[in-house]
Computed example of a mutant assay.
Amino acid sequence: MSLSLGLAACGISAGLFGSMFVPVRKYDAGDGFFAQWVMSTAILFVGFLVHVYRGFPGFYPLAMVGGACWTIGNACAIPIINRLGMAMGILIWNTANCLTGWASGRFGLFGTTARPPANQPLNYAGLACVIIGGILFSRLQSKPSNGGRKRSIEMGDIPEKEALNETPKGSGESEDEDPEVVVKQETTIAAGKKDRIIAFILSLISGVLYGVTFAPVNYMIDQRDTKFPTYPTAGLDYVFSHYFGIFLTSTALFLGYCIYKRNDPWINPQIALPGYVSGLFWGIAQSSFFVANDNLSQTVTFPIITMLPGCIASAWSILYFREITGQRNFTILAVAMTITLFGAAMVGLSKSFTF
Rank of each mutant, 00 (worst) to 15 (best):
P274E: 07
I198W: 11
N263L: 11
R262I: 02
P265L: 07
F200Q: 05
D178R: 05
Y210H: 10
P216S: 09
E180D: 15
S206E: 04
A272V: 10
A215I: 00
I197Q: 13
I246K: 01
N218Y: 06
Q270C: 11
G256E: 07
Q185N: 04
I246S: 02
A252E: 00
Y260D: 10
T213E: 03
P269K: 12
Q270V: 13
L255A: 14
L236R: 02
Y238E: 06
K194A: 10
Y210S: 03
H242P: 02
H242W: 11
Y219V: 00
L253I: 15
I198H: 09
D195W: 13
I205M: 13
E180S: 15
Y210V: 08
A199Y: 09
T230Q: 10
Y257E: 08
L273Y: 12
L273F: 14
D178E: 12
S278W: 00
G211M: 03
L253N: 07
A252K: 15
Y276K: 02
C258L: 07
Y276Q: 01
G207L: 04
V277E: 02
Y210E: 01
V208T: 02
I198V: 13
P269G: 12
K193F: 02
L202H: 06
A215F: 03
V183G: 00
Y231C: 01
K184R: 13
Q185R: 12
I221L: 10
K184P: 01
A191V: 02
K194E: 11
S241Y: 11
L280K: 02
H242V: 01
K261A: 15
I267Y: 00
G245P: 09
L255I: 15
G235M: 05
L280D: 03
P265D: 04
Y219W: 14
K193D: 10
I267M: 00
W266S: 04
I189W: 06
N263R: 06
T251P: 11
V217S: 04
D264H: 14
V181M: 15
I205E: 05
Q185Y: 13
I259L: 09
K193C: 01
G192E: 09
G192M: 08
P229W: 00
S278G: 14
P274A: 04
I259C: 08
G275P: 01
T213H: 00
T188H: 01
P216E: 01
F244W: 14
I189P: 03
P229E: 04
L236E: 15
K227D: 14
S203H: 07
I259W: 05
L248F: 06
T233D: 13
A234Q: 13
E186P: 02
I259M: 02
T249N: 02
L280A: 14
V183N: 12
K193V: 08
E186L: 12
F281T: 06
F281V: 02
I197G: 05
R224A: 10
P274D: 05
T251W: 11
K261R: 15
Q185I: 13
P232V: 03
I189T: 08
F214P: 01
S250H: 00
Y257H: 11
A272P: 01
G207P: 09
V239K: 06
Y260K: 14
D264P: 00
G207I: 03
C258Y: 08
V182G: 09
I246E: 02
E186A: 10
G211S: 10
D264C: 04
S278L: 00
H242R: 06
K193H: 10
Y231K: 05
A199R: 08
